[in-house]
Design a protein around this nucleic acid. Structure first.
Length: 575
RNA sequence: GCUCUCGUCGUCUAAAGGAUAUGACAUCGGCCUCCGAAGCCGAAAAUCCAGGUUCAAUUCCUGGCGAGAGCACCA
């Protein structure tokens, strides 16, 4: 609804003769006004200096009538800016009406009728689910929710590499430890997966060191692609262990997929597409391999079918894309994948747009920045010294459990779990998805500051306030006729202004494909509420004011809960 | 070597060319007989370097320096 207020101001400016697109910003301090228009542009047109232009413009803006219904009550020049002041009562009326009467506040309809595939997580069976996968998973789920909130028909998909060299290395490694493998059949998924991790590490290391092993592993690779019966038993067993283990992670983090894609179901089609493309001259032969000559259009060459005749990751992605478009006819496919694949995707998307023109401009790489544990050395899954995703989750949980040791609340373990996931997700979604980030376990569970627990805390405080006031959190009727007090304090007005921004923010998150704008907003809202709550007593206030403040608190709780939902974070009753 | 990212308080970070560069952690100093102090208020603290474009540059351009990634048969 901030858009409505802005439209009001833009109308005033247009009426005063300002042409073209009008952009409004916020003054640095609330005393200076609520919205600002910079006059540099119009000053240039008229050959005036910006400050004079601002003064002249203020003269021309029809002085707001002192009527009841005017949203804008004051217009003032501040140097080169024209600043607008919003009437607190009108603002309060609009904001509360919108939030409390409108269940859909913050949602949009511009995505209706369009299908978007969000592909994320994408761990490789028989390998570790590492921190990068965890960050992708959290980003992807948030992005999916943000898109759903805008009306898109979202399909969550997960593409996993169950064929190829890493599987060959794992199978070879397992074969070296057959006895252990046999003894793992009745163990927990965690132990089974830990074993698979070791097997892969062994295979990967030996592959580098020893030529004979290399040949054996290549032979395994052939058997995988050719569905050789000899390896099927071990292959299927290990594959299932991995997938079951991944499932436990998805469940824990509150995500579920509409469709799991596997390399094993797309590699044949991918290979076929490349061979067809070879005949049409789209691909070329080079040193026994088949490549896409990306260098001819400013990119780089990549191998799609290797000299042994096996499709590489590149070819498989072509097969996958074809399957995506056959099954869902998407308007967009968003791949949430680490930034090391940026150049790779440019080539694959280019090849794809030639082979399947309908995919053009629909494939999108949502770049995921790296995640590094603070103070940690660079990790390599090949060396086996990684901290896995679930180890990090457990580590966060242990920290939260320690912090909450003194708390006397029911269902503590349940709360510990919720708070931990909130802390983890919040920290991951706090920075721009494409930026590298340093993850500090201590900081993420930190009791204070820009953290998941800070924002959850607000919601629990509001719940407890509403209970004390005798209004249960969900009992306020939607068709309230809110009485607005004569006096609205500066803190209350600031809080209202932040509340009003929510729908703009949910739209921005879609436009930028960036969940972190929601995180930043939720934090700003929490801060604004805390400032208000510190200065304004609710329960001791006069009837009318008390009523208004309870509605305000209620509105904050609702927007906060909705915002956190978009991040995949659940709120708690108490903590 | 070529290409692509990225360099902001001690640390983690924010700013689709615009007002005094945003917050948080840590540090220092205040605020609980009062709605949950997991809170609030205050202090100190930063745009890698050199040019250029612009009325205006953390942002755009060029060149350094530094970090990371990609660059043929891995995924």
């Amino acid at each position: 609804m901030i858009q409505e207020i802005k439209k009001n101001i833009i109308d005033l400016l247009t009426a005063a003769g300002v042409m073209g697109d009008i952009e409004l910003s916020s003054p640095p301090k609330p005393e200076m006004g609520d919205f600002a228009f910079a006059c540099f542009g119009i000053a240039k047109e008229k050959g005036e200096n910006p400050a004079t232009a601002a003064k002249n413009l203020v003269e021309k803006i029809s002085p707001p009538v002192d009527g009841e219904e005017d949203l804008i009550v004051k217009v003032q020049a501040f140097g080169p800016y024209v600043n607008f002041f919003v009437d607190s009562q009108e603002l309060a009326k609009t904001v509360l009406k919108n939030i409390l009467e409108n269940k859909k506040f913050g949602t949009h309809t511009f995505g209706q009728g369009q299908t978007i595939l969000v592909e994320y997580a994408c761990p490789n069976p028989m390998k570790v689910f590492h921190l990068g996968h965890l960050r992708n998973l959290i980003t992807g789920e948030a992005m999916a929710r943000i898109l759903e909130n805008a009306g898109y028909d979202v399909k969550r998909v997960n593409y996993q590499g169950d064929v190829g060299m890493h599987i060959a290395k794992s199978l070879w490694g397992i074969n070296q430890m057959n006895d252990v493998f046999a003894s793992m059949k009745n163990k927990s998924v965690e132990e089974q997966v830990a074993f698979l991790g070791k097997a892969y590490a062994l295979g990967a290391t030996k592959f580098e060191e020893d030529a004979a092993t290399q040949a054996e592993i290549l032979e395994y690779n052939r058997k995988i692609y050719e569905h050789d019966w000899e390896i099927q038993d071990v292959y299927q067993t290990a594959r299932v262990w991995s997938l079951e283990y991944f499932d436990t992670i998805y469940t824990k983090l509150g995500t579920r997929f509409d469709r799991l894609y596997f390399e094993s179901e797309v590699f044949n089609e991918g290979k076929k597409m490349v061979l067809d493309g070879l005949e049409k001259g789209i691909f070329k032969k080079s040193d026994g391999a088949i490549i896409f000559p990306g260098s001819e259009c400013g990119l780089h060459d990549r191998v799609f079918i290797n000299s042994q005749g096996f499709p590489t990751y590149e070819a498989k992605d072509l097969g996958l894309a074809k399957l995506h478009f056959t099954e869902y006819k998407p308007d967009k496919v968003i791949h949430v994948v680490g930034k090391e694949q940026t150049e790779y995707f440019k080539v694959v998307f280019q090849a794809l747009s030639v082979i399947l023109p309908k995919t053009k401009d629909k494939e999108l790489h949502l770049v995921g920045g790296y995640l590094q544990l603070k103070g940690d050395e660079k990790m390599s899954s090949r060396k086996g010294n990684v901290i896995s995703g679930d180890e990090l989750v457990m580590s966060v949980e242990n920290n939260v459990r320690k912090i909450m040791a003194e708390r006397d609340i029911q269902h503590k373990e349940f709360i510990v779990n919720k708070v931990s996931i909130a802390a983890l997700k919040y920290t991951m979604l706090r920075v721009n998805a494409s930026e590298d980030m340093a993850f500090d376990v201590q900081e993420s569970v930190s009791i204070s500051g820009d953290s998941g627990s800070y924002v959850l805390y607000i919601v629990t405080r509001i719940r407890s306030l509403l209970v004390k006031a005798g209004v249960l959190p969900n009992s306020i009727e939607l068709n309230v006729s809110v009485k607005i007090p004569e006096e609205i304090g500066a803190e209350e007005k600031q809080l209202l202004l932040v509340l009003a921004r929510f729908s703009e923010v949910t739209q921005q998150a879609v436009n930028e494909f960036n969940p972190s704008v929601i995180t930043k907003y939720v934090f700003a809202l929490a801060q604004a509420f805390n400032v208000f709550y510190q200065t304004c007593s609710v329960l001791d206030a006069a009837t009318e004011q008390k009523q208004f403040r309870l509605y305000l608190a209620q509105a904050v709780a609702r927007v906060m809960t909705d915002g956190l939902y978009l991040l995949g974070i659940e709120t708690v009753e108490e903590m």
